[in-house]
Computed example of a mutant assay.
Amino acid sequence: MNPVWLLRMVRWLRRPPSVARVKLVLGVVAACLVLVAVEWAVGWPEALEVHRIARP
């Protein structure tokens, strides 16, 4: 593991993030999971698919 990550972990343990920041991060993660679930259940729109154009 990179020593920089160890220093970040120590700094995070000494000064943990605020409750508002934790709620923000959890909200963003939840929104991403909802988008993935909707995409999985409904499917990808055909208008957004990539179709190759045949070259003459």
Rank of each mutant, 00 (worst) to 15 (best):
42 V>S: 00
35 L>D: 07
19 V>N: 12
8 R>K: 14
33 L>P: 08
47 A>G: 02
43 G>L: 00
15 R>L: 12
37 A>I: 05
42 V>H: 01
44 W>E: 08
32 C>N: 06
46 E>G: 03
32 C>W: 01
20 A>E: 13
5 W>N: 15
47 A>Q: 08
55 R>M: 09
16 P>Y: 09
15 R>S: 13
26 L>A: 04
9 M>I: 14
2 N>Q: 12
9 M>F: 14
41 A>G: 09
43 G>R: 02
45 P>Q: 11
38 V>Q: 07
39 E>T: 00
25 V>S: 07
2 N>D: 15
53 I>D: 07
12 W>C: 06
24 L>G: 02
29 V>W: 05
23 K>Q: 14
26 L>E: 09
47 A>F: 05
38 V>R: 05
18 S>A: 13
56 P>K: 07
24 L>K: 07
7 L>A: 06
54 A>F: 08
43 G>P: 02
1 M>T: 07
54 A>K: 03
46 E>M: 08
17 P>I: 15
17 P>T: 15
22 V>L: 08
15 R>P: 00
2 N>W: 10
14 R>N: 11
37 A>F: 08
53 I>H: 10
24 L>Y: 01
20 A>S: 10
54 A>C: 00
25 V>M: 04
19 V>Y: 08
35 L>T: 07
50 V>G: 00
25 V>E: 09
22 V>I: 15
13 L>N: 13
41 A>S: 12
2 N>H: 15
31 A>P: 01
53 I>M: 06
21 R>Y: 02
21 R>G: 01
41 A>K: 13
40 W>V: 13
44 W>K: 05
33 L>W: 10
54 A>E: 08
34 V>P: 00
26 L>I: 04
23 K>R: 14
18 S>M: 09
3 P>N: 12
2 N>L: 12
31 A>Q: 07
8 R>L: 15
30 A>D: 04
52 R>V: 03
36 V>A: 14
49 E>G: 03
54 A>W: 10
41 A>E: 11
